[in-house]
């Protein structure tokens, strides 16, 4: 079985092609994609479709990113990756035409009905939030209070 990887996919007319990050954020990855690493993971109760997680801001002078989730403030930093990462994306919608002729089961490498992968970005940096969140007092909620960053013991 062969699963093709498109190195230079045609820019589709999706939203990402016209929209880019402001330079302050783009410096943590690329114009169209950044990787944010959290120690732990985002856990949500209930429906999270389109929900706001919090505010991501970058201090213009120190270039430090901060992430405000509810009453918790996370301080992050810029980390250069030892080896560049290719971000692969499969969009099953584009490949519906081939689906029937090619409907063999796909191994664990790529679950689901994926037929090809696009290299959507090559990133050399990531934004890492590795510290414990700092509790802060706010006049009003700037995010969903029901959200929190769960700490994992590592």
């Amino acid at each position: 079985m062969i699963i093709p990887i498109n190195l230079h996919p045609e820019r589709s007319s999706s939203t990402s092609s016209t929209c880019t990050f402001p330079p302050a954020l783009a410096q943590f990855g690329s114009d169209e994609l950044i990787l944010v690493e959290l120690q732990g993971s985002l856990e949500v109760e209930g429906d999270n479709i389109g929900a706001t997680v919090g505010k991501l801001s970058v201090d213009p002078s120190t270039k430090k990113p901060t992430l405000l989730i509810g009453h918790h403030l996370l301080e992050g930093k810029l980390v250069n990756l030892p080896k560049p990462l290719a971000v692969l994306h499969n969009s099953p919608l584009q490949n519906t035409a081939n689906d029937e002729s090619n409907s063999m089961s796909v191994d664990g490498e790529s679950k689901g009905s994926s037929k090809s992968w696009d290299v959507v970005a090559v990133v050399k940096k990531k934004m890492v939030f590795a510290k414990r969140p700092i509790p802060i007092m706010l006049g009003k909620n700037s995010g969903m209070t029901s959200l929190g960053v769960e700490k994992k013991t590592t």
Partner: peptide, 19 residues
């Protein structure tokens, strides 16, 4: 230099589609 961080509004389509 501030923006809202949100979950995807089409999670069924997005989740699991990146490597």
């Amino acid at each position: 230099n501030e923006c809202n961080l949100r979950f995807s509004s089409s999670p069924a389509q997005d989740t699991g589609s990146y490597r």
